[in-house]
Design a protein around this nucleic acid. Sequence first.
RNA 1: GCGCCUGUAGCUCAGUUUGGAUAGAGCAACGGACUUCUAAUCCGUAGGUCGUGCGUUCGAGUCGCACCAGGCGCGCCA
Length: 558
Amino acid sequence: MAGETMKDALQTILRQAIDCVAEEFYQKIPQDIGIPLSVPPSDDLGDYSSNVAMLLAKLFRTSPMRLAEAIIRNVKGEAGPIAWLEVKPPGFINIFLSSNWWRQRIIDVLSMGGDYGIAQTREPQKVQIEFVSANPVGPLNVVSARAAALGDSLANLLSAVGHEVQREYLINDAGNQVTLFGESVLSRYFALIGHDYPFPENGYLGDYITDVAEWVFNEHGAEFEAIEDEGVRRRFVDISLGRMIENQRQTLLDYGVVFDVWFSERALRAKGGPDDVKAILKERGSLFREDGALWFEATKFGDKRDRVLVKRDGEATYLLGDLAYHRDKYQRGFDLIIDILGPDHQGQVAGILGGIEALGLERRKTRVMISGHVRLLRDGKTLAMSKRAGDFISMNDLLQDVGKDAARFFFLLRTASAHLDFDLDLAKKQTPENPVYYVQYAHARVRSIFRKAAELGMDPGDLIEADLSLLSDDEAHIAKRLCRFPEMIERAASKHEPHLVCYYLMELAGDFHRYYNKTKVLTNDPEVTSARLALSEAVRRVIEAGLKIIGVSAPDAM
RNA sequence: GCGCCUGUAGCUCAGUUUGGAUAGAGCAACGGACUUCUAAUCCGUAGGUCGUGCGUUCGAGUCGCACCAGGCGCGCCA
C-alpha cells in the first residue's frame, strides 16, 4: 500500500457508496466534500469511524441515521479489508476491519524494510527549512538545541512523505556583534602574546572567548601582532569566527544534525542582495525617508508599524538583510520555505512577511514557526542564565549532561510553540519515569528475544512466511497500531508537528511492553513462535523508523 | 496599551487544525507481579467545575465574543 494509507482506501470506498446513495436520493453532492475518518474512542466502536452522514443529512433531506444506513447498504467491500459496518446513534458509521486483514499487514512492515511509512505524496515539493542560525559569536545554547531538534525532525518527516528537503543555516557573519566578538577575542589573544589590548565595552565575557584566543595562538602564534593593518585584523576576525562556527557545526553534528547549506550573510551583502531589495521596494513605492533614515511602509502590508531599513548612520538593519535573504530563497525556487525562529524573534515576523509581500513574492510560501522558550530545571529549581556574562548552560553542556537521545526526545515532547520546562534530572534518569528509555527499551527487548532464540538454537525461518493467522486478537491490535504509523507520519508532516511521533512511539512501546509481559514469544510450537517473532520484528522496525525520524538511537541492548 | 504563546488530574503534558460517542498518558500516591524471552517492564486502585462567563450548534475541551491569570515580544539592536 505504498503511497496510500488505509484511510485513503476507506475514504474512496465511502465516497463511492455516497455517490450511489446520491443517485438514489436524486441529489448532487459537491465534489469538494471531505470524508472525515477518525479512530473511535474504543475498539467496540470499530477501527475507523466517520461522521459523514451527520454532515450530509441536511443536504439529503433525511436523518443522519437513515442516511448512514443507506450508505453502508451501498458499500461494496467484499474483497476488501472491511469485515462489517455499523451505524450508531446519532449517525456514526463505524467500520470494522477483519482481524485477519490486520494480521496480514505485518507482512507489509516486514517486506518494506526501512521504507515502511515512507510514502510518496501526491505533490512532492521543494522545501527549505532554515533553523538554528545562531549568531556565530558564541556556543549554541539550549534554545538552539530545541530548534535543532524541531527543524531536523521536521525535515526528516517532510522527506519521509516524499518532499525534497534542504536544511539551511544562516551564518550571521556581518554586523556589529561580529566586530564585538572579534575585539573580545583580540583582547584575550593579545594578553597571551604579552601585549595589552583594551577589552571592548559590552564585550563577550565567556570562557569560550579565551578558548578561541588560545586556539588562535596555538595555531598561529603571534602572527597577528600587527593588528593595526586592516588586512591582518580582518584575517584574525575571520579565523576566530571560523573557529566558532566550526565549534557550532561540531555540536550540531554530535546532535545528529547536518545542514546542507551554510549560508553566509556576508556573501549575500557582497552580492548586493540588500541593494536589490531597496531598489525593488523603491520601484514599488513602499519606501520613504524620514529623520535621515530609510523606511519600509510595513503598515501597508499588515504590520502594525513601519520599519527602518537603513539607519541614519547608513547601516542596514536586520530587517533589510533578512528581506534580502528571503528574496534569495525565493529565487532558489522553493515551494515552501520554513523559518524556525527563536521566541525572541516573534516581534519581527510581521515585518518579514510584510516585506516579502511588498517585494511581490508569494507570502504564503513562507511559514514561520516560533520555537518556544526553554527553562532548565535542576533539583526542581529554574537555572538562571545570562549570555553576555558567559554564565549559561550551552548546548554542549546539555549533551554532555543528558545525552543526545534524551535531549532530542524531550524537546519534541511539547508542541513547538509552547514554553518548555526541561527537567535535567528527569532526562538523566534511567527509570520508567523517563519516556525515552521506555521506547528504546521496547526496541532492545525485541532484539533480546531474537538473541535468546538464537541461543536456544531456534530457527525462526523467513518471517515473511510466518502463518499470521495463528496470532490472537490482542496481537492483531498491535498490528493495527503498526498500520497507523504511515497515517501518523503523514499527519505529523502535513501539520508540521513532529511531537506526534513521540506520542505514537510511546503508545506503541506500551502495547509491546504489555504484550511482552503477558505473552511468551518463544514457545515450543515453532509455527506460533514464528508468527510472534514476525509481529515482534515488525514492532521493532516501526520503532526504529520512528526513532530515526526524531533522531534518537534505537539500541540493541540496554 | 498592542501582538504572540499558554491555562485540561497533585505535577508535567497530549487531545483543539477538520466540533462528535464514557476527556487520555506519564509521573507522584496506594495495593500487587521477578524459579520466566531484560522488573529500564507489567497488572490494579484512586484522582477532573477542560481558567471564567455568554453565544453558535442536534452536539463544544475543540468554533465566536468578552473577561481572568501567567510567560514573552513590541529599538534607527541582532
